[in-house]
Design a protein around this nucleic acid. Structure first.
Lengths: 257, 257
DNA sequence: ACCAATTTGTCCGTATGTATG
DNA sequence: TCATACATACGGACAAATTGG
């Protein structure tokens, strides 16, 4: 205890392994190290940083987790572009841990998906349309609720790619990942959900084909609204937190690979 | 080379340090380990996993970077809720590395910020209003462009908190972080930008006070539009990628702390 | 297709500074 | 105050995998 309020916090030197990570990250963010560039061997880094190999390895783990470096062929280290999927799963997990409610999820998705489909309808190329139609065909042929839900998820991710806006694409992905498992549950307990979903997707693709932004947005709105209705018909409350159970669904395999 | 296309990828057992990280992460995501719970000492983990300390440490680094565990008082390990800021900075960095354009950033922010302010206007409590007004007051008193831009950024983050929607809050944050440094530049080269910004913030707060969702949204739209106009007046092109320079601004200090 | 050098993953032991009781 | 426990960091070692002739 001091007689007066402390003015300064204690000065703590960052651990060596953090400094290693920060130094490498700086090189990457500054552009001096570009995606694809090799990082050198662990022994190289040991020599440059003058720290122990264990220390270097701990620093590398930090960057590896962040997706800034990866182990490629031969497990050699090289600079990498962080993957969207990876970041999105992280964010999704955080949302689950923070116990966000389905209402928050639904509201946000309503905004994000309608915004995304607007851009998609405005910018869809012929190849994009073909991909969207293929997705609709796959959904029409889906036999299980799981498959249907998976295709639905892919469709929305595809729409986001077609929007040609990577900021929106990355913004909507975490909510999209959390949406999917619930859709499986809805499909299993609400018979009319499947056909309605398919119909919405069809109309969205048609609208994209016609470059009709307004119709595309409206059908997406109905689509998201349908999810909510199905959710409530299935007897669940929008004010429940998104279950932890779903977090298991968020590919552990891809987490650290 | 094989005579036919390879059907299977090679089966690789995950390194021990990854398995350590995944095992701990599973306990957290399943809820068996809750935020705040101690994780035990490194020696404990060595005993449980039957691997070397170095291996345990590498695994811990992965989780530490992901924000799932932290070192608290006495550097003891305990489970933690991933911070929004942290996740957002990671995503922002990824956007920069992927060289997203200012146009993508602007378009996404237009959607995200208007959506957020709608919810904020609908749900702002008296305490929220007071905070918003305090932010406006601080901006009115700001002397430098940096301070003004910083307060602007905080204001938008505050609006997102007031929206009471954490999904939206997290979705808009990465774009918000990238917006700020550019605003500083605009303020320095476009004299009318400062007053217009302040005016927009004032109107947004007034609309929140009046629970007027439509007006709040409209002023936010103008506000974001102003940014774009200022950006172009300052002589920059919307189709340029967001500069790497800005990534340095994204607190390296907080990255691994 | 074989071999030698390199590199990673993992392990062991130890020293040091710091935090806790 | 002192002793203990713990995190950080270091040095050295070895097997398996990978590389590059």
């Amino acid at each position: 205890m001091t007689s007066e309020a402390d003015r300064f916090e204690r000065i703590q030197p960052a651990p060596a392994y953090q400094q290693v990570a920060e130094a490498i990250e700086q090189e990457i963010l500054s552009g001096r190290l570009q995606p694809g560039d090799p990082l050198g061997t662990e022994a190289d880094l040991v020599r440059q940083f003058q720290v122990n190999r264990s220390t270097v390895r701990e620093g590398i783990r930090l960057l590896e987790q962040g997706g800034l470096i990866r182990r490629g062929q031969g497990r050699r280290l090289h600079v990498s572009l962080p993957r969207y999927n990876r970041l999105a799963t992280r964010v999704s997990r955080a949302l689950v841990l923070h116990q966000v409610t389905f209402r928050e999820l639904w509201e946000a998705s309503m905004h994000l998906e309608t915004a995304t489909v607007e851009s998609a309808a405005a910018r869809a190329s012929d190849a994009d349309i073909a991909e969207l139609e293929a997705s609709v065909a796959r959904m029409a042929a889906a036999t299980s609720a799981e498959a249907h839900a998976e295709i639905d998820s892919d469709f929305h991710a595809l729409v986001a790619r077609v929007s040609k806006n990577r900021v929106l694409q990355l913004a909507r992905e975490p909510a999209g990942l959390l949406f999917t498992p619930t859709l499986t549950m809805i499909l299993n307990s609400v018979p009319q959900a499947g056909p309605r979903n398919l119909e919405a997707h069809q109309h969205i693709v048609e609208a994209c084909k016609a470059r009709d932004v307004v119709v595309a947005r409206d059908w997406m709105r109905r689509h998201i609204t349908d999810w909510r209705r199905g959710f409530e018909i299935a007897g669940k409350s929008l004010d429940d937190p998104v279950e932890r159970t779903f977090a298991g669904h968020l590919g552990l395999g891809s987490a650290y690979s």
